[in-house]
Amino acid sequence: MEIIIGKYNYWIYISLMMIGFYAMIAKKNLVKKIVGMNIFQTAIILFFISTAYKKDATIPILVKSQEVINPAQYINPLPHVLMLTAIVVMVSTFGVALAIIMMLYKQYKTLDEDEIIEILKKKK
């Protein structure tokens, strides 16, 4: 019981991550693969944010009038910073991936992985 209460958040992120992982390796449609990659990245972001959390702590915006600052009172700002940058990288990789997929669709008129490989084999 102690283990379940302490670790259940990690298990939620692991199940989310595995949904994304399955979409990346089992789906044939390229757009579905990209959506799986996004779910995977979201799971990692949630994991990092949850490591920043401390019990009975508040957001890392300090009260200016406070004389002595107790670090246990504020949650850890470092994972928030790292994930803020990771979200932007996620958006830019998504944009570039969609651009590449659009060019692939223009070239082969399909988004299915196997059909693209078939067309490539016929060309040889």
Partner: peptide, 9 residues
């Protein structure tokens, strides 16, 4: 960047 990616896509 947001506007540029949206317009191009």
């Amino acid at each position: 960047v947001m506007v540029s990616i949206f317009l191009n896509l």
